[in-house]
Design a protein around this nucleic acid. Structure first.
Lengths: 110, 110
DNA sequence: TTGTTCATATAGATTTCCTATGGATAGACG
DNA sequence: CGTCTATCCATAGGAAATCTATATGAACAA
């Protein structure tokens, strides 16, 4: 099992995070870590490629700006297509989770 | 999101399945699919490499035998190390799930 | 001026999974 | 008897996602 993330869930987490409002990359990572009480770690080498994928698919848009700390940042915004994709990801994830839960149910001892 | 499995969970599912008793590969796949009500699909191209990994790590042992359908089968048995590994995988998985759940909590509208 | 935090990004390696393929045998069905 | 389907094992090759490591640079604190 992965130490930082459950593989395959990063894009869903990013889209969900952007549902609360536009954020730049670094802030997205921080948000996921904080909201998860540091149960999840988002490595930069995972995040930025994921954002590239989301951009390429049209699920987010981005524009350059300046952060509250006066640094050059690229701010991401979820698109309507991104919202639809998020819904698909969530229902797929829930489906798989349901399956896993059933398999992982405790074994009844004889 | 993956259509068949949540990436990174297959070994945990296999070890858990073997907790109920030794099974051969094909039967492991069938068991996971049936117990999950077909929410999970286990492709042979995923399963057999996973079993090789489990063998290599010493988490299962295997021996050749004959199935109830009179076919030559390789039956897998979870080892004590495998049980310990399963516990680690489960707690890691639960930790990640908890983090995901927190991030995926509905956004409160203003 | 030195170090730390913030911030973006890519290259490369690793891992895992899926698709496709290649066997082989048992048993059903015609 | 021949063919088809289901059972069973396994690997090769490719695709995708993640992590490690690295590079770059600005802002700010000490």
């Amino acid at each position: 099992m992965n130490k930082d993330l459950l593989p395959g869930t990063l894009e869903m987490l990013v889209l969900q995070t952007l549902l609360r409002g536009p954020l730049h990359g670094y802030a997205i990572a921080q948000s996921i870590e904080q909201v998860s009480d540091d149960l999840l770690q988002v490595e930069e080498g995972s995040l930025y490629p994921a954002l590239q994928r989301l951009l390429r698919e049209g699920w987010v848009t981005a524009e350059w700006g300046v952060s509250a700390r006066n640094r050059k940042v690229r701010t991401y915004l979820i698109t309507p297509e991104g919202r639809a994709q998020l819904e698909r990801e969530v229902s797929s994830f829930e489906r798989l989770m349901k399956g896993i839960t059933q398999v992982m149910k405790p074994v009844e001892e004889a």
